[in-house]
Simulated scan of single mutants.
Amino acid sequence: MAVDLICEDPRWDALNLAALAAPACAAALAEVGLDPDDWDISLLGCDDVRIAALNADFRGKPSPTNVLSWPSDERAAGIDGEMPPPPDPSDPELGDIAIAYDTCAKEAEAAAKPIAEHATHLIVHATLHLLGFDHERDGDADLMEGLESRILVAMGYADPYGEDAG
């Protein structure tokens, strides 16, 4: 699997975003039965100013957020709580992710988690979005959160939605 990484904020370099992203993306893909070697993802490590501009441009919300994702194709499930259809294997590009250091760091601190753990969660979350998972409907949210929990626990992290979640 290729994670094409662009770091616009040097704080991501200090955290070694590349070393966090590759296993997080691979774990998310493997959890849904996809071979990580078959897929490509682009990741932008940025700051709150950049992600606020992206959020304004693409979602009409001119404020920072933790992570954004742009799937290369519409993959959402038609029925609430069902698995989305798998991506087309003839097009290995799954889409793009942007993650903001400032918001990620603030959220990690508020949850009393290491920033690397929270960033890994956000990358897993965004990768699932690229695969068509969402959390707008209750059944979809339950499915997505369950996947995130299994992936992160298997990676050695705490369950982000468990009783001890921050």
Rank of each mutant, 00 (worst) to 15 (best):
L29K: 00
K106T: 09
T120K: 00
I41G: 05
I123N: 11
S149V: 01
D38G: 11
D91T: 10
R150N: 13
A112Q: 14
D138P: 07
Y101E: 07
D102W: 09
A30P: 04
K61A: 11
E74T: 10
D96I: 06
A14I: 02
A14S: 13
E145H: 11
A28E: 05
G45S: 13
C25D: 02
H121W: 13
P89D: 14
L15G: 10
V67D: 06
A158L: 11
G95V: 10
H118I: 03
N55L: 08
A27L: 10
G45A: 11
L68E: 04
G33T: 05
D37G: 14
P92M: 06
I79D: 13
M144F: 01
A112F: 07
L44F: 09
E148L: 01
I115A: 07
A112R: 06
H125Y: 11
A165E: 03
G166Q: 09
P71E: 12
I97A: 03
L68Y: 04
I79G: 09
I41A: 12
A18N: 13
C46V: 15
L5I: 15
T65C: 15
A76G: 05
W70G: 07
C104G: 10
L130S: 04
I115V: 15
G45P: 12
E8R: 15
D96Y: 13
K113I: 04
V153M: 06
I51N: 08
L147Y: 08
A112W: 02
D80S: 03
A119F: 02
L68P: 06
L131N: 03
P36V: 05
H118N: 11
A98P: 06
L17S: 03
D164I: 01
L34A: 02
N66W: 04
S90C: 05
I51F: 06
V67R: 09
H125R: 02
W12Q: 10
R50M: 11
A105Y: 01
D102T: 13
I151H: 00
P160D: 08
I115K: 02
Y161E: 09
S42W: 10
L147G: 10
P10C: 04
A105S: 13
G146R: 02
F58D: 14
E74Q: 13
I79C: 09
G33D: 02
P10M: 07
V153P: 05
E82N: 14
D9Q: 02
D57L: 12
A112L: 11
A18C: 10
N55A: 12
L147E: 10
A165Y: 00
A105C: 05
K61Q: 11
P114Q: 06
R137E: 12
A76M: 10
A18Q: 15
E93R: 02
D134H: 11
G139N: 12
E136G: 15
G139P: 12
D37A: 15
D47K: 06
C7V: 15
I51C: 08
E163Y: 03
I41N: 03
